[in-house]
Design a protein around this nucleic acid. Structure first.
Lengths: 209, 209
DNA sequence: TCCGTGCGACGTACGGCGTACGTAGGAGGG
DNA sequence: CCCTCCTACGTACGCCGTACGTCGCACGGA
């Protein structure tokens, strides 16, 4: 009568963790809850995973592995940078609840270097080498990290702010803000992402000449 | 004999929370620990603060209030933007353990609009108005958020990574990375911050013409 | 002076957490 | 047939946030 329970596996545990993270965020993950979701005893998990921290690490890695290498058929370095940036954004949008966690975490050396190498390749194509290329890559990473954190934080489908922020503030003290109140109160993430991206690319172009 | 205990106050509680956050980070804050630090019973705190979440909010606000308006004597819009950016960085460096929390949190409308208004003023000086100015401000905020998160996360004095990351990775697969291994393994936050900042300013200049 | 009355401090208790530790049962090899 | 080892699991400890009830004290009015 007892259905032969699927045996516990690191695989199955990490899967469950990833699902839970994507559904309710990292803070919802607990060993007890995970075990319950798997129909197992809490402590059984510890036969496959040393502790919660590395379980979360494993889940983060699994999600990271969902980053697909970008595809682009162009010789223009700008198109490569655009495609790379958009691929990162795609990852963030596929896993909004996990993104902050991913961004905070140190990536595994292997995957990390794959990304770094690709980025360096793009800057190389643009004519940037050595320390300058590293600096540009880091500036780009910073911008991506920042916009995407903001985008994820303001996406309404996960409790992000709706606002309009001018509840009980005396706007007469802030004339410039008042003049762009409509723009301040709304987000067009597609357009904003592209705007910032083009801004940075323009800066690189200018740096070249 | 008993020294007349200083009475509990919202003020004193928030102070203790701020100190604890700056010393050990938000995750170290607990009502029990805070009470112990104040020589009071745990539940006494609830006479002055409705729950932990708003206590942390209050602490965040108090830290935020430490943001000093920047000073600069120049008519050049670039200098204003530089000064503003550096002021934000100063705040992050004064409160590294709290910065991620601050960045994640929604700022109080009043302080928020003061910052926004100042930023819009700088873009106005540069000749940018309306939606374009808002877009630029957001791009700038994204960059600041990103670099400073990275800077704080990699600052060694709070458990940031030391690395050199090439533990057991086969570097021959990543020739470009291998070529800049020294640069990848070290951070000069001052220089990197300024580099990215100048990059963005250059982009704005180019956009103007 | 005495008596409410109200407020701040505190203890207890509940349900949750991560996990150290001990145990039990079954599978596989000698 | 027995021994070993691996996996699953229960119990327990020390944390957490906080609902709730109580107690003592200061203060105002009679």
């Amino acid at each position: 009568m007892s259905p032969p329970r699927e045996p516990l596996t690191r695989e199955r545990i990490v899967d469950a963790a990833v699902r839970l993270i994507e559904r309710e965020g990292v803070e919802a993950v607990s060993m007890r809850r995970l075990a319950a979701e798997l129909g197992a005893g809490t402590m059984s998990l510890y036969n496959h995973v040393p502790n919660k921290a590395v379980l979360v690490d494993l889940a983060a890695e699994r999600i990271m592995a969902d980053a697909r290498p970008y595809q682009v058929d162009s010789d223009d370095w700008r198109d490569h940078i655009r495609a790379h940036a958009r691929a990162v954004r795609e990852l963030a949008r596929r896993h909004p609840r996990a993104f902050v966690m991913l961004a905070t975490r140190r990536l595994s050396s292997e995957a990390g270097f794959r990304t770094i190498e690709a980025a360096l390749g793009n800057f190389d194509r643009a004519g940037f080498r050595g320390g300058v290329a590293v600096g540009m890559m880091r500036a780009m990473v910073s911008y991506l990290l920042g916009t995407l954190m903001r985008e994820v934080a303001t996406s309404p489908e996960l409790g992000g702010i709706a606002l309009s922020p001018y509840e009980d503030v005396d706007m007469s003290a802030f004339p410039l803000s008042a003049g762009v109140m409509d723009e301040l109160g709304t987000y067009d993430h597609d357009q904003e992402f592209e705007f910032g991206l083009e801004l940075l690319i323009a800066a690189l172009e200018r740096y070249r000449s």
